[in-house]
Design a protein around this nucleic acid. Sequence first.
DNA 1: GATAGGCCTTCCAGTAGATGGAAGGTCAAG
DNA 2: CTTGACCTTCCATCTACTGGAAGGCCTATC
Lengths: 137, 137
Amino acid sequence: MSDHIGMTIGEVAQRSGVPAKTIRYYEDAGVIGRALRGENKYRTYSDSDVQTLRFIHRARSLGFSLKEVTDLLALYRNRRRTSREVKKIALAHVAEIDRKIAELTAIRKTIANLAERCRGDDRPDCPILDEFEALDL
Amino acid sequence: MSDHIGMTIGEVAQRSGVPAKTIRYYEDAGVIGRALRGENKYRTYSDSDVQTLRFIHRARSLGFSLKEVTDLLALYRNRRRTSREVKKIALAHVAEIDRKIAELTAIRKTIANLAERCRGDDRPDCPILDEFEALDL
DNA sequence: GATAGGCCTTCCAGTAGATGGAAGGTCAAG
DNA sequence: CTTGACCTTCCATCTACTGGAAGGCCTATC
């Protein structure tokens, strides 16, 4: 594991997949804490910041709101919360994720079904296109 | 199965979980076709419209853009596309969904791990909160 | 030492995807 | 005959970015 301790915003942007501008926005919006500044006033990031940003990136692309992500990250950071409370919130999130996985699986089935019934030739349509039955999840 | 053939927007909103205002917005935005109007100029919907709206609702909540959803629905509607093309696009979507499922599974693991390590008592924090290692997906 | 590129700041504009409200009108049920 | 649900159009607000401009500092290269 390389110890990239003094990364610039550009480097961390490239590593995390989150644009520099969006990282600054997240800082403003309180999703992530205010980044430490070097002597040159540049923001400095570590590997764990890259992890956090990747986490945010993933969660956002999976339909979690910025508020949900913020709360989730706060869950990890806030030492004043009781173990009971953290556990309760975390388990609620797990349940929500299981629901999302089930829904994705349903949509996958619908689309895979469409693909399956397509002959894959030059004919103008797939049999299933006539009816909207495929959306019958 | 009840044959709700002449549903109003309010009824379909309630059944699909998509607010009436949003349904009108989807019509404007070309996500769904212009709804048939009754003699009273009211939009009329059928059961299949409810299915479609539920599909849109799910897909949106899972991080698909409105454009992606629109294209996906067009895939079912457009009879001019070749079977080959439909199959190709459908399979690409299946691959994307599999990726999303994998990411959700990773996030689930992270959060379940946090919950697991919480004692669930009144102590002020969970052991894992000290380090950000839990995000090491 | 000049020039280029990455960073800093602040600010303002625009986009997507809704969501809410107001204005003004129709319609069907109690 | 008054509610309540629908119709229309329009305009404002919100979230979560994304982009650009202005003005300035840092760092590396020619």
